[in-house]
């Protein structure tokens, strides 16, 4: 069967099987920022924006996502022109091994889209579905706070 997805603004027609999971389909399509962590919807490494909602792509059946708009970390910025959240993560030193970073950035984007001035508690709540096993969370929360400040100034 075929599904139609708009991934990072680009329309795509993709062949999938009824049992395919969105995470696997997106990775096969080359969106390698999405990581396969637990596969159970607990770690957040596979987070994407599905019709502007942050979701774990390991819990979405590819066929069920037909007609949706998907945003991955690749769609936010480029190495030459990174998104302000990506910049903030680099500046705050919120990246160590980098495995969780794309998911963190997707969750942070969803949070700032909904609430451009989050408190520390709101940032923690917004990122509660994303695990990081290297940096701890202090610098990640700092990065989101810095990004929110930049958003406010602009």
């Amino acid at each position: 069967m075929h599904i139609h997805l708009t991934i990072n603004g680009q329309k795509k027609r993709i062949e999938v099987r009824p049992g395919d999971i969105l995470l696997d389909v997106l990775r096969k399509e080359g969106y390698q920022s999405i990581k396969k962590g637990c596969g159970l919807g607990e770690c957040g490494a596979c987070a994407v924006l599905l019709d502007n909602r942050p979701v774990n792509s390991c819990l979405v059946l590819a066929a069920d996502a037909d007609g949706s708009e998907i945003t991955t970390a690749e769609g936010l910025g480029t190495p030459d022109k990174p998104h302000f959240l990506q910049e903030a993560f680099v500046k705050a030193g919120a990246v160590q091994c980098g495995y969780c970073t794309p998911g963190m950035i997707i969750s942070a984007k969803a949070l700032l889209d909904r609430n451009p001035r989050p408190s520390t508690e709101e940032i923690k709540k917004g990122l509660d579905g994303n695990y990081c096993r290297c940096t701890g969370y202090v610098k990640i929360i700092d990065a989101v706070r810095q990004a929110a400040l930049k958003l406010k100034r602009s």
């Binding site: 919807g41 607990e42 942050p54 774990n56 819990l59 979405v60 969750s107 949070l111 509660d128 579905g129």
Partner: peptide, 9 residues
């Protein structure tokens, strides 16, 4: 109930 990522599903 669950995390933000899962509550969206």
């Amino acid at each position: 109930l669950g995390s933000t990522l899962n509550r969206s599903l």
